[in-house]
């Protein structure tokens, strides 16, 4: 009897683990299965590089380059904000703050990570956008710039906690060696600590990129939503995730529009998958 239960238990754990892998496979298969048929009607080249996204016109066009550019503008903008703030906060928490201040700052930054994205979206839409509109005399505050700010603050805790881990893993002996040679704290940070922890820092940035480009609610609510090539960061954009979530409700099951949205998801998946593999290998090297 005992033997039987032992084997049974083993079997159950195996099923769970394999089930998890099947889920991942299922996700990949399902988005490819629903998305790939699009390319019977649209050439891949036209899909990726076409500049017109008119999925519901009589003469429908499915070029997503404006959507990709929208995603990139917002994501890179977010990183421009999140990298200095996140790295700076991490260095402050790890190297400068006395113990009591660290105990306050660390959970607060973690708190930032726990806030649901839709609440960020609400904040961006109802509070930040009107402020940006007035400040820069724009017609609308819902644009790439506002979205990048909000997204940057969402990504900040991810970058910060990865950088902090990386800094913490630098041996104390290296700090002492540098200080004992007459380096100031700042020189120790910039010349010894950051170089020594750079793989972790880069890993954090990559992870932040993956997270930002995949974020949906904020860009859906705040980025404005027009599928155009932005001429400045103060213009409205339609990132890929926003297009998928805004338009899926209008589609009919397995019509061409539905397929095109899944095809966007394939592109998104490949990008985020690439970045998670990259940050994974960075972590491995360490």
């Amino acid at each position: 009897m005992k033997k039987l239960y032992d084997s049974l238990f083993y079997l159950i754990t195996l099923i769970c683990a394999v089930g998890t892998m099947i889920m991942l496979a299922g996700i990949i298969i399902s988005i490819f299965n629903e998305g790939l048929p699009l390319f019977r009607h649209v050439k891949i080249w036209d899909f990726l590089f076409g500049t017109f996204w008119y999925p519901t016109h009589a003469e429908a066009e499915f070029g997503i380059s404006t959507l990709i550019v929208g995603s990139l503008v917002v994501t890179l903008g977010a990183l421009v904000i999140a990298i200095p703030l996140g790295l700076g906060s991490a260095i402050f928490i790890s190297e400068i703050a006395p113990a009591w201040l660290r105990e306050i700052c660390k959970p607060l930054i973690e708190l930032l990570a726990g806030i649901p994205s839709v609440v960020y979206g609400l904040f961006g839409m109802a509070l930040l956008a009107p402020m940006i509109r007035q400040l820069f005399h724009l017609d609308s505050g819902l644009n790439a710039f506002t979205a990048a700010i909000i997204l940057g603050l969402m990504v900040l805790p991810i970058i910060s906690s990865m950088c902090e881990d990386a800094l913490q893993s630098v041996p104390k002996a290296l700090r002492e060696a540098s200080l004992a040679l007459g380096a100031t704290r700042w020189e120790t940070i910039t010349r010894v600590l950051i170089p020594a922890s750079r793989t972790g820092v880069i890993g954090g940035v990559l992870m932040g990129f993956g997270r930002a480009i995949g974020e949906t609610m904020v860009v859906l609510m705040v980025a404005g939503g027009s599928a155009q090539m932005p001429k400045s960061i103060f213009q409205s954009v339609r990132p890929m995730t926003a297009a998928i979530s805004a338009e899926m409700g209008e589609t009919v099951f397995r019509d061409i529009h539905y397929q095109s949205l899944f095809a966007i998801a394939i592109v998104l998946f490949i990008i985020t998958f690439g970045f998670s593999l990259l940050s994974e290998t960075m972590g491995r090297k360490r």
Binding site: M21, M23, E34, G214, I244, S245, L261, F273, S276
Partner: peptide
């Protein structure tokens, strides 16, 4: 398996939504 798990963790939530829908 661990790579699969980490990949799963990095997938944007909207893709989970599409998967669930499909």
């Amino acid at each position: 398996v661990k790579i699969c798990v980490n990949t799963l963790a990095g997938i944007p939530s909207i893709i989970f939504g599409l998967f669930g829908m499909a």
